[in-house]
């Protein structure tokens, strides 16, 4: 079989493109599902927190967290069906254990620190969630790191400089930003 250098070059380029597309489809599909689900939870939850008060907020946040998690799992499973992997079950269990332990650590820190207001509790929870996302990104997909750091920076800016509209800031820029980013990644894929 005879292949000229230019044919070899074309074939290698085709291989490289296919490999890149495959890697992107795997990493980006997970990223956009997480982004959109988290974004919706933040958008609705923080908007309610800005304008409502009292016990109802606890129920709203608990309900939204359950809905967001269910949506993420549902969409993730649907995409996961396109690539079957017997090796993902133990990893999924470890990821679940990681998030559970991180939640316990967050509860312990909040219990010890005794934050004085809701904004401090919110900021601590956001920092723990972003820390978890950062760990997931670094372990499973380096390309997803870049959205975690700007969202953390945005949250800190809102908390430190705009306390009066902090929740609205988080809803529009944090939640809305994540949804927009998720849709952008989806459209590019």
């Amino acid at each position: 079989m005879n292949v000229s250098p230019s044919e070899a070059e074309e074939a290698l380029a085709a291989i490289q493109t296919a490999i890149q597309k495959t890697r992107h489809s795997i990493t980006h599909s997970g990223a956009y599902v997480t982004l959109i689900a988290t974004g919706i939870v933040w958008l609705v939850g923080f908007t309610c927190t800005q304008f409502l008060q009292g016990e109802i907020l606890v129920y709203i946040w608990v309900g939204l967290s359950i809905l967001g998690s269910a949506l993420g799992v549902f969409l993730g499973t649907r995409i996961g069906k396109r690539i079957r992997s017997p090796s993902t079950a133990p990893i999924a269990r470890r990821i679940g254990a990681f998030w559970l332990l991180l939640a316990l650590y967050a509860i312990a820190v909040i219990g010890i620190a005794h934050p004085t207001d809701g904004q401090q509790v919110t900021m601590l929870v956001i920092l723990f969630i972003m820390l978890g996302q950062l760990a997931m990104s670094l372990l499973f997909s380096l390309s997803a790191v870049w959205w975690v750091l700007p969202v953390t920076a945005l949250a800190l800016i809102g908390y430190l400089l705009l306390p009066d509209i902090f929740y609205l800031w988080m809803a529009v820029l944090g939640g809305g930003g994540m949804i927009a980013l998720g849709l952008y990644i989806r459209s590019r894929w």
């Binding site: 085709a14 291989i15 296919a18 490999i19 597309k21 495959t22 890697r23 069906k81 396109r82 690539i83 079957r84 992997s85 017997p86 090796s87």
Partner: peptide, 13 residues
Amino acid sequence: AVLVTLEPTDEAD
């Protein structure tokens, strides 16, 4: 190229 990029135990739809 696509199939080799996946883990050896993975299957693509």
